[in-house]
């Protein structure tokens, strides 16, 4: 039998000459294991903190099974309910649509102001970004509660909540997009003697437009999902019915509502995909010798 010794020579000698490399590799492996161990310990500690008992867990799973069983078959109960649900769903979509669009429109100029390569001001960048962070820090649910207090119950409050929280997210995203714009077209336009505004209008905006659109579409998909729960606090949409039906344990209604939400969201995702492919499409290959 051929031993590895004959093929590779004296292993001990090789190990000695490359001791440093082997040490580094071993240290990296230990580090990786260490990190995994720490995360696992935190996991166990966390579970202990929240009182995770296996008995309780399995009892709960049993109850969950019962609930799932009672969800079949999903049904709205009667035609009247179905119409109510349908109207609420349309309302949800409108909330998401307006909320996303208005936020994008407002966040665009703000994002421009916050972009260092557009304004040249680092102070503006810092202040605006912190404002965006604060707005984003408050969950849209909380915004919904606040706006219900201000404009009353109904979808208006929900729309405002989504719009405001989106301004924070879009503001951050847009400013990052502008700052990451390809500097080459900008240089090209600057070399013709153009002012800052011209550079913005012709070199930056057309190039980043597809990215901006993609981000807006992504948030529209996400907003549709979050708009479905705003109704729980009375801010319009299908969330109200969801909450009520769970409260009264009408599981078939709940299942039907969830199904409606799933179908709608799938539809919005598909629409968003179509819009993406149409406007953004596949960028043609640039010269490989960059």
């Amino acid at each position: 039998m051929r031993s590895s010794r004959s093929t590779f020579g004296d292993l001990a000698l090789i190990a000695a000459t490359h001791a440093a490399t082997i040490r580094t590799a071993e240290r990296k492996a230990r580090q990786g294991l260490g990190v995994a161990l720490v995360l696992l310990t935190l996991l166990v500690l966390g579970l202990w903190w929240i009182d995770f008992g296996f008995l309780r867990f399995f009892a709960g799973t049993g109850r969950l099974g019962q609930i799932l069983w009672r969800m079949l078959p999903p049904s709205p109960g009667n035609a009247e309910h179905f119409l109510l649900y349908w109207h609420a769903l349309v309302e949800t979509l409108c909330i998401a649509f307006i909320g996303t669009l208005v936020a994008a429109a407002i966040a665009l100029p703000l994002g421009l102001l916050a972009a260092r390569n557009v304004t040249g001001s680092a102070a503006l960048h810092f202040t605006l970004r912190r404002c965006f962070d604060i707005i984003r820090g408050i969950d849209r649910f909380v915004w919904a509660l606040i706006f219900v207090r201000v404009v009353g119950l109904g979808p208006f409050a929900g729309t405002l909540a989504i719009a405001i929280s989106n301004i924070g997210s879009f503001g951050k995203l847009f400013s990052e997009t502008f700052e990451g714009a390809d500097p080459k077209p900008v240089e090209g336009v600057v070399s013709t003697g153009a002012h800052r505004l011209h550079t913005l209008r012709f070199a930056i905006l057309p190039e980043v437009a597809p990215v901006l659109l993609s981000q807006i579409l992504y948030y529209f998909e996400s907003d549709t999902r979050s708009a479905t729960v705003l109704g729980i606090v009375g801010a319009g949409g299908i969330g109200l019915y969801l909450y009520e039906e769970i409260r009264v344990l009408e599981w078939t209604h709940v299942a039907f509502l969830i199904l409606m939400i799933l179908v709608t969201v799938a539809g919005i995702d598909a629409l968003s995909g179509i819009i993406r492919r149409w406007f953004i499409g596949k960028r043609p290959q640039r010269d490989p010798r960059r």
């Binding site: 080459k184 077209p185 240089e187 090209g188 336009v189 012709f202 070199a203 437009a209």
Partner: peptide
């Protein structure tokens, strides 16, 4: 420029 520096989408 070496890489033309045109605005691709225009």
């Amino acid at each position: 420029f070496q890489q033309f520096n045109l605005v691709g989408r225009l």
